[in-house]
């Protein structure tokens, strides 16, 4: 088959695009960085790719709310293109700011309140501060193609608005019952807890969401920042053959595309 192709979206303020490309290439994909203006001009640029990445950063300065302006732009100019991409069985991943964009477009979790308004949002950390720290993640969804079931990951977060909240308790139930919670924040032994185990106060320790297809993933932690051993915060204490957890996400994506396309 042909090489797996990924598009990493660029826009004003996105700043994790290059390392995301590096991660995808390490996983065996061919990855191109494309500016949103050029995709809006020619949405067929997406046709050739099987993975679309909304990377981390501060799109449009996170003005109004994190990811909001870019989400608005995507909805009004690329809504059909992105929905078409997902409907074609392809993969979409949003990391950090990209996750915020996917939630604020409504692509994640993919359902809304009865009045049409959003059920889920990502808002300010309980600490009210931007925080850079490493967290453990326990897979919680069993149908998400990006996830290796049972494999706990250690990855960094770096955000000020990462708290996943729902508008109503019913929406939270629905998230959990329908398997939208893709990862939960846990401690090194797998237990849930308060700060800093759950670094932002997310409801039910939710760190990541997936849609009903399992082919769209949004997560606050940055898998592209742990693709080499020397990125681990205490790699100097760890065995030399240690695997880089972040790669599992990208490897799973590339493997899925290789098998299904």
């Amino acid at each position: 088959m042909n090489k797996v192709k990924a598009i990493v979206l660029r826009a004003a303020g996105i700043n994790c695009d290059q390392e995301t490309v590096e991660a995808l290439e390490l996983a065996g994909a061919q990855a191109a960085r494309l500016h949103i203006n050029s995709i809006i001009k020619d949405p067929s640029a997406l046709d050739d790719a099987q993975i679309l990445v909304f990377p981390g950063g501060f799109s449009y300065g996170d003005d109004v709310a994190a990811g909001k302006i870019l989400a608005n732009q995507v909805m009004h100019h690329l809504g059909d293109a992105v929905r078409g991409f997902i409907d074609a069985g392809k993969l979409v991943i949003g990391i950090c700011n990209g996750f915020q964009v996917l939630v604020k477009t409504g692509i994640l979790p993919g359902f809304s309140e009865s009045d049409g308004s959003s059920s889920v949002t990502i808002t300010y950390n309980d600490s009210a501060k931007f925080e850079d720290r490493w967290v453990y993640l326990e897979p919680a969804a069993d149908n998400c193609v990006f996830i290796t079931p049972g494999r706990r990951l250690y990855l960094p977060i770096a955000h000020g608005e990462g708290k996943v909240v729902t508008k109503t308790p019913e929406s939270l139930d629905k998230l959990l019952e329908e398997g939208h919670a893709a990862f939960r924040y846990v401690d090194s032994a797998g237990g849930q807890g308060g700060f800093p185990v759950n670094p932002n106060g997310s409801m039910e320790s939710i760190a990541a969401l997936t849609d009903t297809t399992g082919r769209v993933l949004g997560l606050m932690p940055h898998p592209e920042r742990f693709i080499r051993r020397t990125q681990h915060p205490f790699w100097t204490r760890m065995p030399e053959n240690m695997e880089a957890d972040g790669m599992t996400i990208f490897n799973n994506a590339v493997e899925y595309v290789s098998t299904n396309f």
């Binding site: 994790c16 290059q18 925080e131 850079d132 720290r133 770096a158 990125q231 915060p233």
Partner: peptide, 18 residues
């Protein structure tokens, strides 16, 4: 230190906290 993103660009080898 934690309010600063010290890992963006993916280049950190020795971070400010260890």
């Amino acid at each position: 230190i934690r309010q600063y993103d010290h890992e963006v660009q993916g280049g950190s080898v020795v971070k400010p906290l260890c």
